[in-house]
């Protein structure tokens, strides 16, 4: 591993250079709500990038799977760089890539969107109450699936290429001529470890993904009735989940099709023409999402389908806390 060092004071020059070739997206803080989300960055807004957040409100997947996209009449898109991607979103790509880049049927839009995007993963030095990546053996810093990992300490940015795409971007912009080190500085290691410790402490009772699975499988129906009672089937939990991938195809003239995000929490999602609907009842549908995350998808793809980002907990208008449910089932 090689870490190229850029002084924070020089970083905006690099971003400006990136802007001549790429669209640039990075988290920007909303000072009123204290939340942050990806925004398109221009030369004027470079200074508003917020590097120290944890999970941007919107998951990374929206760059690859926009809410609506014509998948037959495909528009070419501009190459882009996404800065500030947390590890929970990077880990989610293991599910999405398996589905959308499946050798038998490669999704042309997803592939184009994925190929055209350079991802800068980042360390999380802060965390939310709902963050629980470490419960599923993920770290709160980039481990895989990004092109460049980015860690900041003491006014210095450490950039580590993690893919050929990342390497060639850094080379092209001469960042690889900068001073570099082959181990990450102690200050970063200890900042990372602090977050790991705090997250483990915050979630010390939360079972890991295997034990979560076991307790969900043997949980009582009353548990699901109790929690689903507060669910209004709005689908926010799935819209915002970095691994949820479902969609609807909408037909347009000239045999074009628009792929539009769909959610298993909506009534009728699984209804067949003859009328049978395995997910007709709210409690079934509600439980299905948990089974999908902790049982079905891990079986299908040998990957985590809940990466612990906590977004579904933050987004639920019924104030349903996924982890509270899991803790209750684990008792």
């Amino acid at each position: 591993m090689r870490y190229y060092i850029v002084a924070e004071t020089e970083w905006s020059q690099h971003l400006n250079r990136f802007l001549s070739e790429y669209e640039l997206y990075a988290p920007v803080k909303n000072t009123e709500t204290e939340s942050y989300d990806y925004e398109q960055i221009t030369a004027e807004t470079i200074d508003s990038i917020y590097y120290n957040g944890n999970t941007p409100t919107t998951p990374l997947k929206t760059f690859y799977l926009p809410i609506k996209e014509n998948v037959v009449n495909i528009k070419e898109n501009q190459p882009r760089i996404v800065i500030g991607v947390p590890n929970c979103d990077l880990a989610a790509l293991n599910i999405l890539d398996n589905i959308y880049l499946d050798d038998d049927y490669i999704d042309p839009c997803y592939k184009q969107n994925r190929d055209n995007t350079v991802i800068f993963g980042k360390d999380c030095y802060t965390y939310k109450k709902s963050c629980h990546c470490t419960s599923y053996s993920l770290k709160p810093y980039p481990q895989e699936n990004c092109d460049v990992s980015m860690s900041i300490t003491d006014g210095m940015i450490y950039l580590c290429p993690m893919s050929d795409k990342g390497e060639s971007l850094l080379k092209k912009h001469k960042i690889t001529d900068n001073k570099s080190v082959d181990t990450i500085p102690e200050t970063i290691i200890s900042k990372r470890q602090d977050v790991v410790n705090n997250l483990q402490n915050q979630n010390k009772n939360l079972p890991d993904e295997k034990n979560t699975r076991i307790s969900i499988e043997k949980s009582s129906e009353e548990l699901w009735d109790k929690y689903s009672d507060k669910c209004v089937s709005c689908g926010a939990c799935s819209f915002i989940c970095p691994t949820c991938h479902c969609f609807l195809l909408i037909d347009k003239e000239h045999f074009e099709k628009v792929r539009s995000v769909d959610v298993c929490q909506y009534p009728g999602f699984a209804r067949v023409a003859a009328g049978e609907d395995p997910l007709h009842y709210l409690n079934k549908r509600f439980k299905y999402r948990y089974l999908c995350k902790y049982c079905y998808k891990p079986d299908m793809f040998k990957a985590l389908a809940c990466t612990g980002c906590g977004r579904c907990i933050d987004a639920c208008i019924g104030k349903i806390d996924k982890n509270e449910l899991i803790l209750e089932s684990f008792k």
Binding site: Y105, L248, L249, D262, C264, A270, V272, A274
Partner: peptide
């Protein structure tokens, strides 16, 4: 098996039955 097949490609999720995509 009859499930709610839509994409046919193992992507849209509508036909899922446990850890199978019935369409694929």
């Amino acid at each position: 098996m009859e499930k709610n097949m839509s994409c046919g490609l193992g992507k849209c999720g509508h036909c899922a039955m446990g850890s199978f995509f019935v369409c694929k």
